[in-house]
Amino acid sequence: MSARRTRAISASERTGVLQPANLARFDARWIVPPDDVREIVDTYWAVRWHLDAGESIAQRIIDHPSVTFSIEHGDVDAPFVVTSARSHAWTRTLAGRGDVFAIRLRPAGLAVLSDLDPASLGPEQELTAALDARAHALLERIASAPDPARRAELADALVRARLAERPLRASQRIANAALEALTAQPHVQRIHDVAALLGTSERTLQRALRTHVGRGPGEIARRIRLQEVVRCLSVADGDIAGIAVDLGYVDQAHLTNEFRRVAGVTPGAYVEALARTQAALRGPAA
């Protein structure tokens, strides 16, 4: 695999990780899918950790509005997991040692790789053969590869084969295009304008996203925007008012209320906690 396909996940990126400084404490990498599988796979990512006895990392996350399949090994709850977007920030606690290889799907991907209904998925559940034989068989095959790079290459081949079996329908392409447009422009925007940009109706856009992601466009847009708020708060010296203006919020209070509903804290309290975490990781001053 070309070295250009894999790179470390940076603390300055839009990941939704609420303690981005923790990314330096374990190996976390993006693996970019090739162009011919990008209609199905948004990205692969891989994480590996080996912590001292008694040590743990509680990682709070506002997740991307997508469905993810993961292959997990070590001190984990299940070997295969499927997750969908949660309504609120959630916590993944890492302890001991382990690794995860994940496939974050584009909206079109779930119907190609599985028989799951996104509207019926819980936030996180074990992906068993009983839950979905098609997706389970896929992950079993990918898990047979020995490392993330070769898992990604095997996943590429399997995704191509699954896509040949189930070519994309028009609604899947609309859902892909909608999520791409919302991700590219995370500021507040009217769904009517997004639909017009894509040359479709608002009703068709809403139906496509609910069918293939299990969420409506407004909820998806808010989640992407909050991920961008997290990124900005971690790199912009806590300028909450400036971030509100840049992202098109009515005012700072609108941003604060939206952030608090999902993250459980105000942006100001989050910035203060972030500063304490960063200071603790730096250690005592000389």
Rank of each mutant, 00 (worst) to 15 (best):
V188N: 01
A177I: 02
D156P: 00
R173Y: 02
S144D: 13
R150P: 00
A155N: 05
H192Y: 15
R173I: 13
A177C: 00
G199D: 10
S144Y: 02
I191Y: 02
R173G: 01
D156N: 11
G199R: 10
Q185P: 00
S201K: 10
L168S: 10
R160K: 11
V188C: 09
E140M: 14
V194K: 04
A184M: 08
A178C: 08
L197W: 01
R150W: 10
I142E: 05
R150V: 04
H192D: 15
E180K: 10
E153A: 15
E202L: 02
L154V: 08
E202P: 04
D156K: 02
E153H: 09
A184D: 15
I142Q: 04
E153V: 15
A178V: 09
Q172L: 02
A177P: 01
Q189D: 02
Q172P: 00
L154P: 02
L182K: 03
A143Q: 13
Q172T: 01
V188S: 06
L198Y: 06
E180N: 11
Q185L: 08
L179A: 07
P186Q: 09
E202V: 08
P148M: 14
V194E: 03
A177F: 01
A181P: 01
A195V: 05
A178R: 06
R169I: 08
R203I: 13
H192P: 00
A170Q: 13
A175Q: 08
R141W: 00
Q185C: 07
P186R: 05
A145S: 13
L197P: 00
L154I: 01
A155S: 15
A164D: 15
L168K: 04
R150F: 09
A195Q: 07
H192G: 13
L182F: 05
E202C: 02
P186L: 12
L168P: 06
A184C: 10
T200G: 04
A196L: 12
L163Q: 03
P167M: 06
L168R: 04
N176L: 03
S171H: 10
R173C: 04
A149S: 13
S201M: 07
D147F: 06
E165N: 05
G199W: 05
V194I: 12
R203K: 14
R151D: 02
T200I: 15
A178M: 05
V188Q: 11
A149K: 11
P148G: 10
N176T: 06
A195S: 05
T200P: 04
H187N: 13
V159S: 03
L168W: 06
R141M: 13
A177M: 04
A152D: 10
A143T: 05
A161Q: 14
A177H: 05
R151A: 04
E153F: 03
A195G: 03
